[in-house]
Design a protein around this nucleic acid. Structure first.
Length: 728
DNA sequence: AGCACGCCGACT
DNA sequence: GTCGGCGTGCTC
């Protein structure tokens, strides 16, 4: 009897055996439908055998082979196994992350697939090849007419074999739609400058072998042109390219540039906001080798790519490559592993590389390609000034110097961007009489004033209440909003510059679909004078008339307990500074700070990221933090603090026992409350494990995890985070 | 993850 | 006397 070992999307570190009915073609990597308990689940076959330990009466059959997606190739299965092992997650959950959604949504028969595809596509034009086969066309028209209803087998049987094959091909693998609409005529790539050519040539010379590169280029130096030149060469040589970006917001712009740079090539987009069907089609096109370039967010790193020839990770330092829940993988790190596995070059691009990547480049493990100059020649780096935010002429956190600079931009018809990393009106509400502050009932956090909506909101749990007039403790009606957020600045600027056209960009203002794109277009069209926003605005947007960037509240990150906060602030400031004066107009950046002599600001003024990174690296070396040490974090939460404490104390004891038993050089720290000690009514705490090398930590983690699973539950939810993005 | 089984408080 | 709370454990 043939037995299929199936990884299922359940929190169990084990695969499940099923017998394979005669006539079912089941191989490794095949997606199948099986029953577990009384549920029907989709899983992936990870092994085929002849025998099983499972008792015969318990053994269930494989119910169905999911033919809508091709089987996972061995290299992708191996990648899943690596991710599961490295991040201590069940293989089935890892695989569920990697695949386009298929569990309940995926219909069973090709006919039903057709019905759903057509419903989803609406009245989209039929692919020509199908439309030309008369009977397939008739079937599809009937499907359109019935709007998603399932047709009987007789309709399928009536098709000519050719029509049936075409239909099936379209339905199951999907033809690549012209995924990227390019309204512009294809512009030739601007000729690369010498630095760009050198960089691109180095990557191209390394094609067909594993070769990691750090491509370090100042903002505006034209890293994208280097990616595209290398991609064009890789594709011309018959390869596929995987291009990872941190955010979906950035993909449309980039997609247009790719379409222009790679005429006639097929690009597909892959990110979590795509509808299931679209994502499946893009995935299948990549897996079938039909797509030449896959542009996507971190999840795209898992796409099967039979002809993979080059991986590019843009903005490699960006924290959004690290998944923060579920399978907590790091897209960049998995990409590096994959490049090694497949023997292809990988380019990690950044103006402000992560300390991890920088250290590898310094050690000579990564090729180090530099673009020290801006690509547009007349554009020079902006001038930096450090000014106080509080002075006699200051208005609502906007200092005299910044106000004057904004005024000058308005007079010249140029644009200003005011950046503050805090949404809402003010981050806190204080009673001037008794000192009461509005706090979240469910979190250890202050409530943020959202004056536009007359609400107090918690930014951690979603709690919202009406903005009160009077202090609930003493009845005093003189409640003071304390501190500044984007809404408050927007109002202050509107009062001070009544004729200016002001746009606020933050999570609240861009919730409507398309709002972000509309904003970008109106900025480009010159319909905006002042932009106020959060870090959403820091990335990848090129506004030619923007000549002033003001930064407020930067000092906050310097106080943070998170060891990565300063690194992130540095990356952010260098990025924000790069937003000013990208075209022909000279730019200026004003950072409001109380500590103008801080090494970070000095480095920023000198446009010298490397010297500040060197400072940070020296600190990390002393403390044994990444990249000089490796971390794993056990985070636990429960309704009662006592349960959390008891669990973490037991977890720590288990860790000590594991480390001692296996003589592993790992340090286990005492349990501490999380930075946000209570969230959504749950008390939170953590145990940190640190090791000078990955090896001991990786040997330690499986044993610790098993010990944790045997610990009494005590109403505690916990998760292991390997290589945590940061913690406090 | 579901969905069971299995022991302790308020009801027809 | 039950009905049901969710704590613990299994599912091939």
């Amino acid at each position: 009897m043939t037995i299929a070992r199936v990884a299922l999307p359940v929190a169990a570190h084990t695969a499940f055996d099923y017998w394979v009915p005669a006539g079912l073609e089941v191989g490794c990597g095949q997606m199948v439908r099986v029953h577990l308990g009384r549920r029907a689940l989709a899983g992936v076959v990870v092994a085929i055998g002849e025998a099983t330990e499972v008792a015969g009466d318990k053994l269930q059959p494989v119910r169905e082979v999911i033919a809508a997606l091709p089987p996972l190739p061995p290299d992708v299965l191996a990648m899943a196994e690596f991710v599961a092992r490295y991040y201590q997650e069940p293989l089935g959950l890892v695989l569920a992350q990697m695949l386009p959604p298929l569990s309940a949504a995926l219909p069973r028969s090709p006919v039903a697939v057709a019905a759903v595809a057509l419903t989803a596509e609406g009245r989209a034009a039929l692919p020509l090849r199908v439309a030309r086969a008369p009977r397939a066309r008739a079937l599809l028209e009937r499907l359109q007419a019935t709007d998603g209803a399932t047709l009987g087998a007789d309709a399928i049987a009536a098709l000519t074999p050719r029509a049936r094959a075409l239909l099936r091909a379209w339905l199951t693998h999907g033809w690549v739609a012209p995924a990227i609409a390019d309204p512009m005529p294809a512009l030739p790539l601007p000729p690369l400058n010498a630095d760009q050519q050198t960089a691109a040539a180095a990557v191209v010379a390394a094609l067909s072998s594993f070769a990691p590169f750090l491509l370090q280029g100042v903002t505006g130096s034209g890293k994208t042109e280097v990616y595209l030149a290398a991609a064009a060469a890789a594709i011309a040589a018959g390869g596929q390219v995987l291009l990872l970006v941190p955010e979906i917001n950035l993909t449309p712009q980039l997609a247009q540039r790719i379409a222009a740079a790679l005429p006639g090539r097929r690009t597909v987009l892959l990110h979590s906001r795509l509808a299931g069907g679209e994502r499946r089609r893009a995935w299948a096109a990549a897996a079938a080798g039909d797509a030449d370039l896959v542009l996507g967010t971190r999840l795209a790193v898992f796409t099967p790519l039979p002809r993979l020839a080059l991986i590019v990770v843009d903005e490699e330092q960006d924290a959004s490559f690290k998944q923060q829940d579920g399978v907590r993988y790091h897209g960049r790190d998995v990409a590096i592993w994959r490049a090694r596995q497949r023997g292809v070059p990988i380019v990690l691009g950044s103006a402000t590389p992560s300390l991890e990547t920088l250290a590898q480049a310094q050690r000579g493990r990564y090729g180090w390609l530099k673009l020290p100059r801006r690509a547009v020649l007349p554009a020079v780096l902006p001038a930096l000034r450090f000014e106080p935010g509080r002075d006699p002429g200051a208005v609502e956190g906007l200092g005299t110097a910044l106000l004057a600079a904004i005024e000058a931009r308005l007079a010249r018809g140029e644009q200003a961007l005011i950046f503050i990393n805090r949404r809402g009106y003010s981050p806190s509400l204080l009673c001037s009489a008794c000192g009461w502050q509005a706090g979240c009932p469910r979190c250890s956090a202050r409530l943020v004033v959202h004056r536009n909506d007359r609400e107090l909101r918690c930014h951690h749990c979603g709690h919202a209440e009406r903005l009160t007039r009077a202090c609930p403790d003493c009845g005093n009606v003189d409640l003071m909003p304390l501190g500044h957020g984007t809404q408050r600045l927007e109002g202050a600027l509107a009062a001070r510059f009544p004729d200016a056209r002001i746009v606020r960009i933050d999570r609240d203002s861009t919730q409507r679909k398309g709002a972000f794109v509309a904003m970008r277009e109106s900025v480009h069209a010159g319909e905006v004078d002042i932009l106020v926003g959060t870090q959403m605005l820091a990335k990848g947007h090129d506004f030619p008339r923007l000549t002033l960037v003001g930064v407020l509240g930067a000092d906050n990150a310097l106080y943070s307990a998170d060891f990565r906060a300063t690194e992130r602030l540095a990356a952010l400031l260098f990025q924000v500074a790069g937003r000013a004066g990208r075209a022909l107009l000279p730019g200026e950046v004003i950072v409001q700070t109380d500590f103008p002599a801080h090494p970070l600001y000095r480095a920023l003024a000198a446009h010298d990221y490397d010297s500040f990174a060197a400072t940070l690296l020296a600190e990390r070396r002393l403390t044994g933090l990444p990249p000089f040490g490796h971390l794993a974090l056990l985070a636990a939460e429960a309704r009662d603090r006592g349960d959390v404490d008891a669990f973490l104390a037991a977890a720590r004891a288990a860790a000590d026992a594991v480390a001692l038993a296996a003589a592993l050089a790992v340090d286990v720290y005492p349990p501490v409350p999380a930075g946000l000690a209570r969230r959504a009514g749950l008390e939170r705490g953590q145990v940190l494990v640190q090791s000078a090398a990955r090896g001991p930590l990786q040997r330690f983690l499986p044993a610790w995890r098993e010990a944790l699973e045997r610990l009494p539950g005590r109403r505690v939810r916990w998760a292991l985070d390997v290589d945590p993005a940061g913690f406090s």
